[in-house]
Write a protein that binds this DNA or RNA. Structure first.
Lengths: 200, 200
DNA sequence: GGTGCCATGTAACGCGTTACATGATTAT
DNA sequence: ATAATCATGTAACGCGTTACATGGCACC
């Protein structure tokens, strides 16, 4: 989800090495609880950024201490970064795995769709609670940004919960429906009726 | 986002071939407007499902017509599918690219964070409008499921819009703050002070 | 003869994950 | 000593995308 550009942004702030970037990124997005990024991803992403010419190894900044590989942003990198920053961020509010699961459960009767919904609601409430506890633990004066991130998560989860209520209210209606047929519409040929020589 | 399991579900309903799956999946998730799936993905995913032993080629179902490769679900596939269906779907409400962009814009001053927010709000409103127009075009009696999916999208976008208002209201406060420092905390060593031989 | 749908793929790449692997420095 | 932290990677794989490539059949 564009860790790539995030790292590029941090490097544009000042030249950095992988370990630093890992810490800084985690600080920015709230680490474990919110948005985890593995160290391996940092290094693979750095390699890819370098390959694309958006960053370069900066030997000049070497210090006596432990081995570091410090990267600086390039002209090209600055351009890409500025472009990213000045564009609206596309949302993916319509790709929902739960919806898919629900549809498949309705179509195949492997599991009870109601059970599915209850489980989902339960899980959303737990997540909401976890976030609220986390928010209370935070120092609001020092972590305003992270607080906002969690506020967003809460609001989204609440929206999903309201939606679930709506879905439940309409489930009976949906089930008595012919259903948005998971069925191919053979328009031209009526499902291969062996138009060549049939049986004579 | 687990097209993989979705396809497996459709195959479990009845043996199917790639082209069929493409149509059926699109019908389920609302194609272009909502959740696009490329044909190439169908075929690569089928290959991977087969490799994992969740589906098998079903030669017995061949018909005279055009070349088809029909797949059936295996025992193992049924197990995986049932497991997926009976688990709650994890959400990713905390991984937000816009938040990241905003943080980077605040940290680097490449672009004005307010401009960023206005652009984002604008884009969200446009998306909301697009969805509402789409909803009006739909036959609600026949596409109840898709209608629900779009309802969900609306609700999520509205949540994001409310959040944006909140962020804007707090932006000044955030800016006057020391900021959740995208800065490494060198705990042990105080940033490589060249403890060896300095300059004598 | 052309358009459009039916039907199937492959190669290469981007992003992310898991698991593996190594070694230096610092604080106790 | 030894645990924690600092520091860097690689190999392999999963999922998804882009671009490329092919060919049959039906309808007009």
């Amino acid at each position: 989800m564009s860790v790539r550009l995030g790292l590029l942004g941090l490097i544009s702030q000042k030249p950095r090495h992988g370990y630093d970037l890992h810490h800084s990124f985690m600080a920015l997005v709230g680490g474990q609880q919110n948005w985890e990024v593995k160290k391996a991803q940092i290094y693979t992403t750095l390699a890819r950024l370098e390959k694309s010419g958006l960053i370069v190894k900066d030997e000049s900044l070497k210090e006596g201490g432990p081995e570091k590989t410090i990267f600086s942003i390039t002209e090209k990198g600055e351009n890409i970064l500025t472009k990213w920053l000045s564009e609206a961020t596309p949302t993916e509010h319509q790709r929902d795995e739960f919806y898919l699961k629900l549809m498949i459960s309705l179509a195949t009767s492997h599991v009870d769709p109601y059970a599915l919904m209850y489980k989902q609601r339960d899980s959303l409430y737990k997540e909401l609670h976890r976030i609220n506890v986390e928010k209370l633990k935070m120092d609001k004066t020092k972590e305003l940004a992270l607080h906002l991130l969690m506020e967003q998560a809460s609001m989204r989860i609440e929206a999903d919960l309201r939606w679930l209520d709506m879905v439940e209210a309409r489930l009976d209606e949906i089930r008595s429906q012919p259903m948005p047929q998971p069925e191919v519409k053979h328009r031209g040929r009526p499902v291969q009726k062996k138009e060549k020589e049939d049986n004579q």
